[in-house]
Computed example of a mutant assay.
Amino acid sequence: MGDTSEDVGVAARFTVHAFTDVGLRRRRNEDAVLVGGWSCQTHDGSLVTMSFMPAPPFVCAVADGMGGHAGGDIASRVALNVISANHREWRSDEDVSDALLDVNDQVRGVGVETDLLGLGTTVAGLCFLADAVVAFNVGDSRIYTVVDGHAVQLSVDDSVFDTNGRPTNIVTQSLGQQTPVRPHLVRLPLRDARYLLCSDGVSGFMTDDELREAVGSDDVGDWCTRIIDTVRANGAEDNFTFVIVDVAPEQSS
């Protein structure tokens, strides 16, 4: 894991539930999920649960290769592979932001090398540092913190909005674009918390009331079941992916 001598003061125990699925209409899964050094882009989703106490920095993320763009599955996979390879060097908000600029360049470079014009992906993730959490996103994949049964959105939707103020599936920036991206970052203290990361295959196929009902239970396993069942009941016309992170900090000696 390398030298963690500067990461002192607070340790945290994580329970993470991860799921990605092609959905009911798509032929391939352009979503991908990352938990630490583990990534997944399976076609038929199965729920994976992990519990551990990693040394910081520790990253969880979801990426959504943009539907209708060539090589969306490649773009999401490349983005998360680059993050996985480099996140151990992250120590600050600036490190996260600079890394996403580099990911943008690398995804674009793969598109040029493979003649896949329009290669692009969203990303939404959490970087857990020694005493803080940095939430980051580019595109319309989302990050929520769940407080008292209510899902509060931390991320910013890089979307074109309809006349009712709802985000459409048209994104205004993504990783892989020619111009530099402007990542959205939010810094939070490291504390007892529950977070939900998801692609728009989840957020776009659940109403606010359905999401509130899904995360209203004290049992996070029940959240997973409700999200999967609701998205499928509502058609699951897109790939859908989520990560639920349950954080329990412990004061280290």
Rank of each mutant, 00 (worst) to 15 (best):
T168N: 07
R88A: 14
D157K: 01
N137H: 05
G204S: 02
L116I: 02
S174D: 00
G176E: 03
F205C: 02
D158R: 05
G176S: 04
L154Q: 00
V171C: 05
Q177N: 01
P189S: 03
G125W: 02
D229P: 05
L211E: 11
G204E: 06
G201I: 03
A214G: 04
R187A: 14
L196T: 09
T163D: 12
G139H: 09
A151S: 09
L119H: 06
Q177W: 00
G139S: 12
V215S: 12
F161V: 00
T145W: 06
E113V: 11
V133R: 10
D95T: 14
N104C: 12
R108A: 13
V103Q: 08
A124R: 02
S97C: 14
N169F: 06
D93R: 15
D219Q: 08
Q173Y: 08
R194K: 14
D98M: 04
V215H: 01
L188H: 15
L197C: 05
D105R: 14
H150I: 12
V156E: 08
T121Q: 09
L117Y: 05
R166L: 12
V181W: 01
P189M: 07
T168M: 03
N137M: 01
N169G: 12
G216H: 02
D98V: 01
V110G: 04
T179S: 15
T168Q: 04
R194Q: 11
I170P: 01
D209T: 04
T179N: 04
T230C: 14
D102Y: 13
G204A: 03
D157L: 09
Q177I: 11
D157Y: 12
A130Q: 04
D158V: 02
H150W: 01
G176K: 12
G120A: 15
F161W: 13
R88Y: 12
D200N: 06
D140G: 09
P189Q: 07
R91M: 14
D102W: 14
S97E: 15
L185F: 10
E210G: 11
H150A: 11
D158G: 00
S203G: 10
V103H: 07
Y195Q: 12
I228M: 09
D102T: 15
S174H: 03
T168H: 12
Q178P: 00
D222F: 02
I143K: 03
L175A: 10
D115H: 15
L175I: 08
S217M: 11
F205G: 01
